[in-house]
């Protein structure tokens, strides 16, 4: 099993946000996590990625059977966990090229590989740019600086393609995208699907799931996964909203 989350409790500044999350993800699967605002979806993504502002108070996250608790943010990333940010950060002065070269080579170093030669790296960049239809010279600009919402999200998928993670968590990658950008982003994800990797797609809307077909859909509500099902659950949520879930939980 790739990811196993057991009774995960986590919070920030003493405020509990996740109240016993259980989730299992196998290689080759796509999971969608849906739910109303403020139920802990982004917190769950951040906690898996190891963000230090959140405290894990109970439970555990196993990745390839190994407890992640003691692993730093960067070591989790190097082990193959990727987080696509809901709000990608603008970093003036750091070019995407250099950012990615540093990232790719640090991951390679972790795996005991030599740095990628400059020419090979640039070829890899060109190849992966095509995957998300980045035609402009985006890569020589500072990371996310002055990018449109669509460019930022494409840039997240581009980075994912460069790093080839085993577990990719996409946090509301569809938010703020027009239909063309949504299609491009979803196509990028679909092309990266392999039998040995998995995706956890966090979204508010069924719309994205027309393009990225999930194997499982989970509803996170008040810090717990309260309902799981197949892709048809997403359609049901789209049609009926979340109120019936809230009522079931009341």
């Amino acid at each position: 099993m790739l990811l196993q989350i057991k009774n995960l409790h986590a919070g920030i500044n003493g405020k509990e946000i996740l109240r016993g999350v259980n989730l299992e993800v196998n290689e080759g699967e796509v999971h969608a996590i849906m739910g109303p605002n403020g139920t802990g979806k982004s917190t769950l993504a951040s906690v898996i990625a190891g963000r230090e502002v959140f405290d894990v108070t109970a439970g555990e996250i196993l990745y390839h059977g190994k407890n992640l608790q003691k692993l730093s943010i960067e070591d989790r990333a190097r082990e193959g966990i990727f987080l696509g940010f809901q709000y990608p950060v603008e970093i003036p002065g750091v070019s995407i090229t250099n950012f990615m070269r540093t990232a790719v080579n640090e991951v390679r170093k972790f795996k005991g590989l030599d740095p990628l030669p400059g020419g090979d790296f640039l070829r890899l960049m060109e190849e992966k740019k095509k995957l998300v239809e980045i035609t402009s010279n985006l890569t020589n600009r500072s990371v996310n600086e002055g990018f449109s919402g669509g460019e930022k999200k494409k840039n997240e998928i581009f980075q994912m393609a460069m790093l080839e993670p085993t577990l990719a968590i996409l946090d509301e990658t569809d938010s703020g995208l027009d239909i063309d950008a949504l299609r491009i982003v979803a196509n990028g994800v679909n092309k990266l699907r392999r039998p040995d990797n998995a995706f956890v797609v966090i979204t508010h809307y069924q719309r994205l799931l027309d393009y990225i077909i999930p194997d499982f859909v989970h509803v996170l509500f008040q810090g717990k996964i309260v309902k799981s099902g197949g892709k048809e659950l997403a359609l049901e949520l789209e049609e009926k909203g979340y109120d019936w879930i809230k009522q079931e939980q009341a």
């Binding site: 963000r51 960067e74 950012f99």
Partner: peptide, 15 residues
Amino acid sequence: DPESMFYLRQRGIGE
């Protein structure tokens, strides 16, 4: 910026 630090480290770049 702690947000930028998290972003860079999440891509595998050491602290």
